[in-house]
Design a protein around this nucleic acid. Structure first.
Lengths: 256, 256
DNA sequence: CGCCTGGTTCTATTCAACAGAACTTCGTTC
DNA sequence: GAACGAAGTTCTGTTGAATAGAACCAGGCG
């Protein structure tokens, strides 16, 4: 995690950020090693952090993250809403790919178009914000199917889903389909994940099938993937969902 | 929440701390009002906070807590262990009250003495670290009974608990008993709560019953209560458990 | 005993942080 | 649509907080 550290505040935050999942507590020396700061510097920063309960000093002299972080983390979890961040991302996607971009969220048994930015091309689909579509059809549908735990199981059980969709895709995200929703219409879709590891929405790029071939499709997929990763990071979700294999990826056991 | 703010780091943390439960996002003006800092100052601090993902700027220009806080909050939750903080607290309790102090945690169907500091008095009980005692007997037992959701229900259902204990106490914490575990032995007990609103342990002061009367008992109860509140705060628990009435106290609905 | 690692204190220098003014939007009122 | 006020942003001279680094202390170990 790269952080600018010209400022004293930046350094203090870097000290906090140096805690990794599974760290019970860190010694001054460990903090110094991880951050690269002088021990005297860390000592002073730590005093400020302690005053505000962002850090606590144990009897042993080791440092531990403070409870203020729990409080703020909870507030953040509740306030992280995808529509706060989606606007500029979709805009940029359309600019760089030239195709239309749409954000879908699940609404009951359907998918709901929460945000849409049209491309400038003459030939494009015409989904509008507020539209409700079948949940499991098209590239976005497959994403819901594969990654939304509330969706996949019941629908699979009820046999509403064609059998060829039931297997996990070889490369998980993004997913591309051709002519599934409408002939000559292709779409690339990718999911966005929230702090509780749940699928909060799906972004997709749609356009004429002939424009979604080979390298062009590959490139669009990459930029889409990157955008979704950035949003997931903003929402506090786990980036492990985008890893080539094994989606969930639980944290390691605490040591020390 | 009082915070020293001579240092730039302290001010930055105060900006974060100014977010209250239920705040979706805050404008620059609101931040300035809550913290009392100049807007230009906040603007600069916010830049540092943004770089480290502790704060995000929405399209609207409003500010929102960043996902780094979720990450660190989770780490903190996992690392907050009561034995890291208990030592000095028990020590201080014994010094100010003159009675022995013990920390119990639940271990299956019993309570387990995790930490003990003996008083200097000639006449005292003799619990030792590592001892296992009946879960629901004595003042600590009542605390488990009233506040540990895993305990109260099954035991009440199985009828293992005397009926006079089944009512909620009028003043919830601390709880005092005389001669319940052993004649002439009195104890005052109070619970400590963790980030998931669960009872993580119980501290109790024990001594000769004659020393736990009226004002003396009242004073001891107050210092004990204060100590437990401090520990709960350290662990990220909710202080509402100590409120005169209604134990749970859920957060208000998010507004904007 | 003497070495080494980790922690703490102290100080001179410098550069980041501050207060405050000034300026720009933007929305509201008259 | 002029005028006002509130919110946000930029800029700057001055000051003191933050820094690097040395020096010092404590304890664990060979």
């Amino acid at each position: 995690m790269k952080t600018e550290l010209q400022t004293s505040v930046g350094r203090a935050l870097a000290v906090l950020d140096s805690f990794r999942a599974g760290d019970q507590s860190l010694s001054l020396a460990e903090l110094a090693e991880r951050t690269g700061f002088y021990k005297s510097t860390i000592l002073r920063l730590a005093q400020s952090l302690q005053r505000a309960n962002f850090l606590v000093r144990l009897e042993s002299g080791r440092y531990q993250l403070g409870a203020a972080l729990i409080r703020l983390g909870e507030i953040c979890k509740r306030s992280a809403r995808i529509d706060d961040h989606i606007g500029p991302v979709l805009q940029k996607l359309v600019e760089t790919t030239g195709e239309s971009a749409t954000l879908y969220v699940r609404k009951g048994g359907q998918r709901f178009c929460l945000r849409r930015v049209d491309s400038q091309r003459a030939l494009r689909d015409h989904v509008r914000e507020g539209d409700l579509l079948p949940l499991t059809i098209g590239a976005p549908g497959r994403v819901f199917l594969y990654f939304d735990s509330d969706v996949a199981r019941p629908n699979l059980a009820r046999g509403e889903v064609p059998p060829e969709f039931r297997t996990t895709p070889s490369r998980p995200l993004p997913i591309i389909t051709h002519g599934e929703y409408e002939p000559d219409l292709a779409s690339i879709a990718c999911g966005i994940f929230g702090p509780a590891d749940e699928l909060v929405g799906v972004i997709c790029l749609t356009g004429l099938g002939s424009r979604f071939q080979r390298k062009a499709a590959q490139a669009m997929g990459d930029t889409l993937l990157e955008a979704c990763q950035r949003l997931t990071a903003l929402l506090g979700g786990d980036l492990a969902h985008y890893a080539p294999r094994k989606p969930p990826a639980k944290r390691g056991a605490p040591r020390r």
